[in-house]
Nucleic acid binder design. Structure first.
Lengths: 366, 366
DNA sequence: ACAATGGGATTATGCGCATTATTAGCGGGT
DNA sequence: ACCCGCTAATAATGCGCATAATCCCATTGT
């Protein structure tokens, strides 16, 4: 620890005023009818410059103020070992935004781990208090905990759409519904009629949004929906063959490379026999050489937007008040990827019909 | 903010003791001859359990204690955009270690950025005080700042070997010297005699360690050293051809893929005409398909070890006192990679040693 | 009987800041 | 003279904890 850091008291002494005055000048606020003359203000400012004073964030926070620290709580290990990196892209955006608005980031790595997932226990969430607010990200969050957090009035933002009673839970998510619907539409527009959905059918928001998008488009076109649970790649491949699907949508939980191998083993090649559309970056591994069609989740942008929103909610300085941080519930557009795994289906007679996918408008997330 | 968190005073009231007693029981320490009876201790412990008390890290820190937060300061953006990810692997190790010993991680993203590199200004380093100690990582650190930090007696650890007067600066680095020497030796053992070093020749520790390793082995074997500055890939390739090198060591600053392309343009193929050894993971891009020979830097391990060391220096609870955290200056062994870009050199007469040489036309594209 | 221990806990204080309540000075209206 | 209103600032307090200083009381020694 530094040998006696410069405190407001030191500054006050130099400027010939009281510590409180220094505090007022620094904060710029004068809540209870306190007035500071311009002359005094300048004297204090000079003293600050001379002494090189800078606020002690810890004391600041203890005294009930803000300390320009925003927390990041991940329900799973933030940086998993062995390559699989789910949070990385989010963090990129988060860090970038943090740098922009000048806040520090506190990673809550000390939370107790229960069954491979971090838990926000009472003692755990007390720690959140260090930060002005907290970003929550993860797939295995506990509803009860969230509810509790909401009740405490502590500012936080969830990364990913999450429903809550009264919509009190702020979030920044990706519009899976629209993106999935659009992906399905692309397949349908090319002439596919037997379009299957491969992925879990849970009730969590990302999954149910994807399912809704798929169902909506299929209903619009009067096509039958087909769901396959990706328990085992071989099993999945067999079902695809059996049902004679000509296109499949793959949830991120499915490993496309693995599935492709299983399909190849059954004489089905992608995209000649089967078009494949990814509904977001797959969780499983680093991107392989295949350029998958479908869409990607704008993770960096989500991270950045979430931090900006949190910053506003937490009343952190540097928070901008522009339109991008106004809405408590933000859904960002996913990025459509043309890719090379989507083609028109074979004609009913079995002859190949290899029209390359129309080049889609590709947008880059910042 | 929580509606009145449970404080030590609350616990004390319930247990029928004073706040100080609670503090003593919690810390386990009794610095000034204070004694607590076992019975009282139990009563306090029970009260803690009942109330669900957990310490307020902010107050704890302000009062001069530890708060189980360790800082991470990176001189460059921690998570760079656009794929290039230098710190990622370190962070993986750091986070893992942090989880192990139960500390939170504070990322100092608010530091002022000057010329693309973060700076530890006075106001910046005052913020470090939030944490019990701080990990420093980066390539463009400022010596003066480090010196200043040392003087303040604030606990920190540098990630990467850094010299300092009196060896007062604790660090955890990789043994580039030994690893480079060994890489050079592998080439020499295969019969290479014209072994060049491609990379910057600055005086920073990583670079100078690599150079020393190279020089040492070449001297041992009585071979002439040859240095090439990698200003431009084409230029570099030309020089390699001109000097008729049969093997080159590549510093991480060099992009091996790019160089390879330039070499191919001059009719030099790797590894048939030229063996290539990487002295650590290249900075430039995501790993391509080529399996480069050479060595890799154990980044995860370095991160973890550094955090463990820091934890001990900072006196953080949970810090283990085993041999791995005892030494203030730790050099970790690099991982040797066999790879596929190292082969025996062509025989002196010019006939191919492995594969028949395909006489190539030399092209100039300066 | 009384001072000298020493175990067992308390009181008091301060960390650096935010904030509320309060004070001091001063000109003008009556 | 007195109160009023207004400006300009200060004193006081508390956030929750660590810790030094202190205190109380039952034993023990002489």
């Amino acid at each position: 620890m530094p040998r006696h850091r410069v405190t407001q008291t030191d500054v006050a002494a130099l400027a010939g005023v009281s510590q409180a005055t220094v505090s007022f000048v620094l904060s710029g606020r004068t809540p209870s009818g306190v007035r500071i003359s311009e002359e005094t203000r300048q004297r204090v400012l000079d003293a600050i410059r001379i002494t090189g004073y800078s606020v002690n964030p810890v004391a600041q926070r203890l005294a009930g103020g803000h300390n320009q620290i925003l927390g990041v709580f991940t329900y799973e290990t933030t940086f998993p070992r062995g390559g699989r990196d789910f949070y990385g892209p989010f963090l990129v955006g988060i860090e970038h935004a943090a740098e922009q608005i000048g806040v520090d980031l506190l990673l809550f790595t000390s939370a107790r781990v229960v069954e491979g997932s971090r838990r926000l226990t009472r003692s755990g969430w007390q720690r959140l208090g260090i930060a002005d607010g907290c970003l929550l990200l993860g797939q295995h969050e506990e509803r009860a905990e969230l509810q509790h957090l909401l009740d405490t009035n502590y500012p936080f933002v969830f990364l990913g759409r999450r429903e809550s009673e009264g919509g009190r839970l702020p979030y920044v998510g990706a519009d899976y519904l629209a993106a999935t619907k659009r992906a399905t539409e692309r397949a349908a527009d090319l002439g596919h009629r037997r379009i299957g959905y491969v992925g879990p059918t849970g009730s969590d928001e990302p999954t149910s949004d994807r399912l809704s998008g798929y169902r909506a488009l299929m209903a619009e076109r009067g096509l039958p929906t087909q769901f396959i649970d990706p328990a085992d790649p071989g099993q999945t491949a067999s079902e695809i063959a059996e049902r004679q699907l000509s296109a499949v949508l793959l949830a991120p939980e499915v490993d496309p490379d693995e599935l492709c191998r299983a399909l190849a083993g059954r004489g089905i090649s992608v995209p000649d026999d089967l078009s494949v559309l990814l509904l977001g970056q797959p969780h499983h591994r680093l991107p392989g050489p295949t350029l998958w069609s479908g869409f990607t989740i704008p993770r960096e942008q989500m991270g950045a937007r979430a931090l900006l929103l949190l910053s506003r909610l937490a009343g952190t300085a540097g928070a901008r008040e522009d339109e991008s941080t106004t809405d408590l519930h933000q859904l960002l557009e996913c990025t459509e990827v043309a890719g090379e795994t989507l083609t028109a289906p074979r004609a009913p007679d079995g002859s190949a019909n290899r029209l390359p996918a129309a080049p889609e408008q590709e947008r880059n997330n910042a």
